[in-house]
């Protein structure tokens, strides 16, 4: 197997035919039996994330979904003062706290089998941003300057693939940034010329930090626009709940409630029809 290209190619072919699921297990939770079934069936326990830039609108959307389902809304804020968890640790959050957890991007094959994402309630964009007043699009960025991209987003991966298709001489440097906030900070301190960030993150950060006011959105040209749909996550075995929430979102989209929520905060997203 180690001996070179032929061996490696045979390995590739054989193993693509014999893959096994890596997400089949539920995560290990010590004393999982202690989590019983919630008895307050008239209440929708919806979770919103303190670290998510869409927190103000997510709260309203959660309440609206509960109302559409004729359930009493009970909000839980997750993630205050903690940088993050793995997906596995979300399992215990579902067991103990959330019927539904808002703020998950619809990415194919990104989730373990024990969780599902609802239909989306809004669509937002990844944005190329700059402070240079004369630039209109990404194409205006000199090749000597770098793009700082929040690491690992679908837009970031698309950018990586685009850059790799260029010759080395035509490429911009890409610096992986740990977060949208780090990317925008690097933009304002001149480490990078353009930052690729999640649109709602720019919205939230500009609301709270006057120092980011000069950051402008660029046209993504020569790349196409990158968007992501956002929905909510539920445990996979809660199929009735998920279907109900899907219907509620469809209804709230159809009657304009979702869009009105987004518009009321000038949130940079559109309801997904």
């Amino acid at each position: 197997m180690r001996s070179g290209t032929t061996g490696a190619a045979a390995t590739l072919l054989a193993c693509l035919l014999c893959a096994s699921a890596s997400y089949a297990q539920t995560p290990f939770v010590p004393d999982e039996w202690k989590y019983g079934k919630r008895q307050d069936s008239a209440t929708l326990h919806y979770c919103v994330d303190a670290r998510d830039p869409d927190l103000p609108v997510a709260r309203k959307i959660g309440q609206a979904i509960a109302s559409a389902l004729l359930l009493q809304p009970k909000e839980h804020v997750i993630g205050e003062n903690v940088v993050g968890e793995t997906l596995d640790s979300l399992y215990e959050i579902f067991l103990g706290t959330c019927d539904v957890y808002l703020g998950f991007k619809l990415i194919p094959d990104a989730y373990p089998e024990w969780m599902k994402v609802t239909r989306p309630y809004y669509r937002a964009s990844y944005l190329f941003t700059a402070v240079e007043p004369g630039w209109r699009s990404l194409a205006d960025l000199p090749k000597s300057q770098a793009i700082g991209s929040t690491m690992g987003t679908s837009a970031d991966l698309r950018l990586i693939q685009y850059l790799q298709a260029l010759s080395p001489a035509e490429r911009w440097s890409r610096f992986p940034m740990s977060s949208d906030q780090a990317a925008l900070k690097a933009l304002t301190n001149g480490t990078i010329g353009v930052a690729l960030v999640w649109g709602p993150a720019l919205w939230a950060l500009q609301r709270s930090d006057a120092g980011l006011a000069k950051i402008r959105q660029l046209s993504p040209n020569p790349l196409p626009a990158a968007t992501a749909d956002v929905g909510a996550a539920v445990l996979a075995n809660e199929s009735f709940l998920r279907n109900s929430i899907d219907r509620a979102i469809a209804s709230l989209t159809g009657d304009g409630t979702i869009q009105a929520i987004l518009d009321s905060d000038k949130f940079p997203a559109t309801a997904v029809k």
């Binding site: 197997m1 193993c15 993050g84 998950f104 990104a110």
Partner: peptide, 23 residues
């Protein structure tokens, strides 16, 4: 895979690893 499901964690993208027996 872009593992950027939300802000529940900031893992920043890694991969799906489907582990399998050797050929």
């Amino acid at each position: 895979t872009p593992l950027d499901p939300g802000q529940a964690y900031t893992g920043g993208g890694r991969a799906v690893f489907a582990r399998t027996l050797v050929p």
